[in-house]
């Protein structure tokens, strides 16, 4: 599925996201998440900022605008990172499109 900025996304029920020692950790709940078994997933600062906004209400465009303001980065760069990350997370079944 092609991910576009008008979509609204949220974490899948098939994972549990946890914050441990300020680190975001995604623990797969069901089989077939990610590429390999026996793995946990973490995100860097930008990834975490995006993840925390995937609330099933805001569109990706709204999230990109918020982040561009917060990080002082050009909207183009943020939009590319955001779409890249969400595409990856949807592929790994960690995020679903509403």
């Amino acid at each position: 599925m092609e991910i576009t900025l008008d979509l609204v996304c949220m974490p899948s029920e098939n994972i549990v996201a946890r914050i441990i020692e300020e680190e975001l950790i995604i623990v797969p709940l069901v089989s077939g998440i990610g590429d390999m078994d026996d793995e946990l997933y973490t995100m860097n600062r930008t990834g975490r900022a995006i993840w925390s906004r995937l609330d099933g209400e805001k569109s990706l465009q709204e999230i990109a605008d918020e982040l561009a303001g917060e990080f002082g980065t050009s909207p183009g760069v943020i939009e590319r990172d955001l779409l890249g990350l969400v595409t990856e997370l949807v592929r790994r079944k960690m995020v679903v499109v509403r």
């Binding site: 995604i26 990610g34 590429d35 390999m36 026996d38 793995e39 946990l40 997933y41 973490t42 995100m43 860097n44 930008t46 990834g47 995006i50 590319r80 990172d81 890249g84 990350l85 990856e88 997370l89 790994r92």
Partner: peptide, 14 residues
């Protein structure tokens, strides 16, 4: 794109 999401084998977790 920078590596926004990273998978880590459990035993290698920093």
């Amino acid at each position: 794109m920078t590596q926004l999401v990273e998978s880590v084998a459990i035993q290698d977790f920093p």
